[in-house]
Write a protein that binds this DNA or RNA. Structure first.
Lengths: 339, 339
DNA sequence: TTGAAAGCGCTAACAC
DNA sequence: GTGTTAGCGCTTTCAA
């Protein structure tokens, strides 16, 4: 028993292949009775369309690609989950790749996606290898940049939020409640405009208040619980330790929180801690983590809509700026009185 | 400027299209000098192969599909991350779908993947709609079942672990340290053989010890932090509350942990709690969560290898049983003395 | 080792 | 509304 093609269905239904094709794809161009009969026949025969042939003839694949830094961080998984679900509703499938924060690998993976004929691509951040933009341009495939609102080439829509403003607000809040010695455990900046913007936000917030930000209060670490743990110990072992630590993401903050507990440092009474992402568990940590809520699911959904629109009509894809509110919870409080 | 095809490259390089194709796909069937020249020309022209045409002619797409219940649970995201990475190393791409634990949606999504011509499919669990197995069989596509070692149709390899044995071991441990009133917050059983097996493991462990398991000590809840929270309150409000609660996954356990804290119940002194999955944060919860380690990344990696092997050779794909060790941490201890 | 030619299964003009 | 006819861009026998 060999593969069933559109011809087999056509023969069995007593119509032409074109009519079968139309019954399936352009239902209202075919007489209802015929269409019903064709569809029933296709079903009876267990016909499964050949996507390759379809894509070759119609010049679109119905697939969308996405490249994220990693799927191991739930914040990206959440975005991808939403993207996938929305694409599914549009009858599209999702091709996914992860770069591991490596620009070269990203370019290579993008090539792979493009060769598979994706009708659109979602990227995280605006900072990518030149090859990425070249490939995208020469393949003439719609792109959407997420997680940021700035830095994308002209014509590329962004669906994101303002990373810099978010940490700036965090700093304002900490200053308001009395902190002056604020440190930051930032994420890796190479190829990561979000991490860079978050640092800039802290710097900006401090500068606006006329507060100096000593070099040693700012370190760059991989996004991991272990790094957060180790770095908190470093910070708190300084002769003049910070009273508040801003972490580049929630993983770092969880590590810092655990290390503080281990060192017997009470959070928030003795030390304030903030995260970034608002993962599911942030609200359930003990104490509950003050953090910035990243609208991951919303970005995924809107990216899907944007790409589907761009693929069908030439619906001028507009950029969207989403909210990234500070979630004040229980890891922040005024600093202890100065001794 | 239109799309560059293999013919353009052939012309520019002064060879035939066949030679270009071979230079790219079967490099050692072509004289090194010619090959080098062809590849350079392709590069210079910015040639990007058309996957649809390639797939149509060669009858394989280089894509693998995976359907997971949800990507929003990091345990599946971790598996997918590993699967994707390994496929990437093999030059394959990953098409991903999520069923939301809905068998009908799973069948529909599988159809979508199959129509896109995936060369293999990874499924979670062995309990699927009949349509799923039919589709797979008639499309003659290799499948691999993960997360379990039993229940798959003959000939379908499983790369998983023994869910039942895992919770049985958990129960043995709890019995050993003195617990007799053991409750369970199980996950939704419909279409979920893992959840069912985990309940069976608890039942078996208790039965082996000759201990009765009252109906009211076993409830089924959605896999969410909120459900864990609410259910713990229910359990602890019973006239005769359990001294230990086994949660169907870590999310439920986190919720239970938070609720216990809220109720002023000390864990593990007054109540023992266990999870299942061993998410990143399990080790960093306060107290650190005793749970079953699910080898999500290992399953993803091995599933990738299995599918790639099955697609190229007919390498009899073998089932693999992985370890799912109990991670004893700080949420379990002997029950309080009987008053 | 290379080239010529025949499709792969489907869609999209274009006729009828 | 439906059928006919060309390809879509590539791989792959088969000959040379």
């Amino acid at each position: 028993m060999k593969k069933i093609t559109i011809h087999d269905v056509a023969c069995a239904a007593g119509v032409s292949a074109a009519t079968v094709s139309r019954s399936l794809n352009l239902p209202d161009q075919v007489k209802p009775a015929v269409r019903a009969h064709v569809i029933a026949t296709a079903e009876r025969l267990g016909y499964l369309a050949d996507g390759a042939a379809r894509a070759l003839a119609s010049r679109r694949s119905g697939a969308v690609g996405a490249i994220v830094p990693t799927l191991d961080n739930p914040i990206f998984a959440t975005c991808i989950a939403a993207l996938q679900q929305r694409l599914d509703e549009h009858g599209r499938v999702l091709l996914i790749a992860s770069s591991g924060y490596d620009p070269a690998r990203e370019a290579r993976d993008l090539r792979g996606l493009l060769e598979r004929g994706v009708d659109g691509v979602m990227l995280v951040g605006a900072d990518h290898a030149a090859a990425v933009w070249h490939l995208l341009a020469s393949a003439r495939v719609p792109v959407v940049v997420t997680w940021t609102t700035t830095g994308a080439p002209p014509g590329v829509p962004c669906i994101g939020f303002d990373n810099q403003a978010a940490t700036r607000r965090l700093v304002s809040y900490l200053l308001d409640i009395g902190h002056r010695r604020i440190a930051m455990i930032a994420g890796p900046s190479p190829g990561n405009d979000r991490a860079t913007a978050r640092v800039a936000g802290v710097r900006e917030g401090l500068a606006r208040a006329g507060i100096d930000w000593p070099e040693e209060y700012r370190v760059e670490r991989p996004y991991s619980v272990a790094a957060g743990r180790a770095t908190l110990i470093e910070f708190m072992s300084m002769p003049r330790p910070p009273t508040a630590i801003i972490c580049g993401n929630d993983h770092l903050a969880f590590g810092a929180l655990a290390a503080a507990a281990g060192m017997g440092i009470r959070v928030p009474a003795e030390l304030s801690l903030t995260g970034f992402d608002d993962l599911d568990f942030a609200a359930h940590a003990t104490p509950a983590l003050t953090t910035v809520h990243v609208p991951a699911a919303a970005m995924g959904r809107q990216a899907a809509d944007c790409l589907v629109a761009a693929a069908s009509a030439r619906a001028g894809p507009a950029s969207v700026e989403l909210e990234a509110p500070v979630m004040l919870r229980d890891t922040t409080a005024p600093p202890p009185p100065i001794r």
